[in-house]
């Protein structure tokens, strides 16, 4: 129990663009919540997209267990692996949700993408995830456009978890939500993490969020990882100036 299991995903020296990301590395372990924190423009979202199989890095590799290199896979294999093993929650719900489809259809889509053919089974799963995210079953037929911001984020999370992924990627999931909706979303995320055991890689600029949910935090600055710590240590004993700035911004 004290030994570390092998990581689910490793980024090895990835770079992107002339300045966006420079030689960044990370490992994500089973069942952990790893937060990427940093100012706007530090490269957090780019690193997240590379880890999630959505953006090939200019340099470096993304490795899965067994040494499988994500971006050396044929495009179709990468797409199907991403659909099966990953879930992605974007900052803007419009990036992952189909605004013209019902909430139920949105949640069920990843199941159909993974080969589900039985409409009733998919609908039942959508209904279960709707309830798990505290969404009102009476609104399963509504389109995402009529939902509140907090509900749309929960809808995204349901859609990202319905197929039982190993890793959930989240890009500033609480952005634009009021404090009460933020707290509610964090509560749900930490419960779901515990129930499903899914590993999470979460981007935030707010160390308060990392403190509440992360097991481990990486600080990014100017496209590089400058500090790694458990959240309590990062707050009590920040070393890098960028980490100190983030701690100062909490107050």
């Amino acid at each position: 129990m004290l030994e570390l299991p092998p990581p689910l995903l490793t980024l090895d020296g990835v770079s992107h663009g002339p300045r966006t990301l420079h030689d960044a590395s990370l490992s994500l372990y089973p069942g952990e919540v790893l937060c990427l924190v940093g100012k706007s423009g530090a490269g957090k979202s780019t690193l997240l997209r590379i880890a999630a199989g959505l953006l090939p890095p200019g340099k470096g590799r993304a490795l899965l267990p067994g040494g499988v290199s994500l971006y050396e896979l044929p495009e179709q294999v990468l797409v199907s692996l991403r659909r099966r093993r990953f879930g992605f929650v974007a900052q803007d719900a419009g990036d992952t949700l189909d605004m013209a489809a019902s909430a139920a259809a949105n949640i069920a889509q990843p199941l159909f993408d993974n080969g589900e053919r039985h409409f009733g089974r998919a609908l039942a799963a959508a209904r279960r995830w709707f309830a798990a995210l505290d969404l009102d079953a009476a609104r399963l037929g509504d389109r995402p456009g009529v939902f509140s911001g907090g509900m749309r984020q929960r809808l995204q999370i349901a859609r990202a978890l319905v197929h039982g992924p190993e890793i959930l990627f989240l890009d500033e999931p609480t952005n634009g939500l009021d404090t009460a909706a933020q707290a509610r979303l964090l509560t749900l995320l930490s419960d779901l993490q515990r129930c499903t055991g899914v590993a999470m890689l979460l981007v935030t600029h707010d160390l308060r969020i990392a403190r509440l949910i992360a097991h481990r935090v990486l600080v990014l600055e100017a496209g590089g990882v400058v500090e790694e710590a458990p959240p309590d240590r990062l707050i009590a004993d920040p070393r890098h100036p960028a980490a100190r700035d983030l701690v100062a911004a909490m107050i």
């Binding site: 129990m1 004290l2 570390l4 952990e32 930490s190 403190r211 949910i213 481990r216 458990p230």
Partner: peptide, 27 residues
């Protein structure tokens, strides 16, 4: 220990009761 190892050791073996309650608001 590396940070991931420390996190694993804490989760499995070390409890820490400080004077502050680190709780998500509303729970």
């Amino acid at each position: 220990l590396s940070v991931p190892e420390l996190v694993a050791a804490r989760r499995a073996a070390i409890g820490y009761c400080t004077q502050f309650l680190p709780a998500i608001p509303g729970r």
